[in-house]
């Protein structure tokens, strides 16, 4: 049975983790590779790097982060942020990323997703959607540029269209919930997950292990993304998995078996 995935997400700016990480065991909690290695040891199912580097010149630092991570961590890595061209994707894959996440560029030119999927395979194209409840509460609108710009798109319809264009996965962030630690937007997650037949990653708002559980059960998510609850050691990955397994969610438990190395 396919297990449900838990994905820690690291915001990376100019090659350093931002928003903070407080692992005691790390020499340098600002180094994304150190943090990635720690999550690897804990049995995270995937890793996500979000490059929020402001300037184009600093883009190359994310390639260095991905390269160093790929040399030490043997698990899937997704990189998002600033992915606009086929060349961006090729460079990230060459550096060692397995998937790239496309957000603003998909809204600006949806054909880009189609071209990327045909070129690299649907499985490595993640479309990230930042969604926010309309004031009247009847739908969720799509936002771009890190949530600053509104669009006329409906999040559920947009997700379906991106699936048709070749997206292999939807990374769905609720901007209403993000940072509030009061749980995922379960209505949004369930609406998108029930509409598309590609995997959906719930993101934005997790504060407790119960929220992860609700994301899978009520939100029908295939994977959950979380940042601060893991970064600040409110909970560890093994704690999260033990909690979920006890409640009947199928998760991968990493045993103490011999490492291949």
């Amino acid at each position: 049975m396919l297990t449900k995935r838990i994905i820690p997400c690291l915001d990376v700016k100019d090659g350093r983790v931002v928003k903070g990480v407080s692992f005691v065991a790390l020499r340098d909690a600002g180094d994304p590779v150190e943090v990635a290695t720690a999550y690897d040891r804990e049995g995270a199912d995937e890793l996500c790097f979000l490059d929020i580097t402001a300037s184009h010149e600093n883009r190359k630092t994310i390639f260095d982060v991905v390269e160093r991570t790929a040399a030490r961590v043997f698990m899937p890595v997704t990189v998002g942020g600033g992915v606009r061209t086929i060349e961006d994707i090729r460079a990230l894959l060459n550096a060692g990323a397995d998937k790239v996440s496309i957000n603003t560029a998909a809204v600006q030119r949806p054909e880009f997703v189609k071209e990327a999927a045909q070129r690299f395979g649907t499985q490595c194209i993640v479309v990230a959607i930042d969604a926010k409840h309309d004031p009247d509460g009847t739908r969720w609108g799509v936002f771009t540029h890190g949530g600053r710009n509104a669009t006329a798109l409906d999040a559920v319809e947009w997700a379906k269209r991106m699936e048709d264009y070749g997206a292999g996965e939807i990374l769905l962030t609720s901007m209403d919930q993000d940072g509030r630690q009061s749980g995922y937007d379960l209505g949004l997650t369930a609406a998108v997950s029930g509409t598309v037949s590609i995997p959906v990653i719930a993101s934005g708002g997790v504060g407790t292990l119960e929220h992860l559980y609700q994301g899978f059960v009520s939100g029908k998510a295939d994977a959950v993304l979380a940042a601060s609850i893991f970064h600040f050691r409110t909970f560890t990955i093994p704690q999260a998995k033990a909690f979920l397994r006890e409640r009947g969610v199928s998760v991968r438990i990493v045993s103490g078996e011999e490492d291949g190395r």
């Binding site: 390269e67 790929a70 040399a71 030490r72 043997f74 894959l93 060459n94 550096a95 060692g96 990323a97 397995d98 690299f120 395979g121 490595c124 291949g260 190395r261």
Partner: peptide, 16 residues
Amino acid sequence: GMGNLRSVSKAFEAVG
């Protein structure tokens, strides 16, 4: 000319 080959070579290196 496709995909992520670095991970494959690094994994072999990691096991010697």
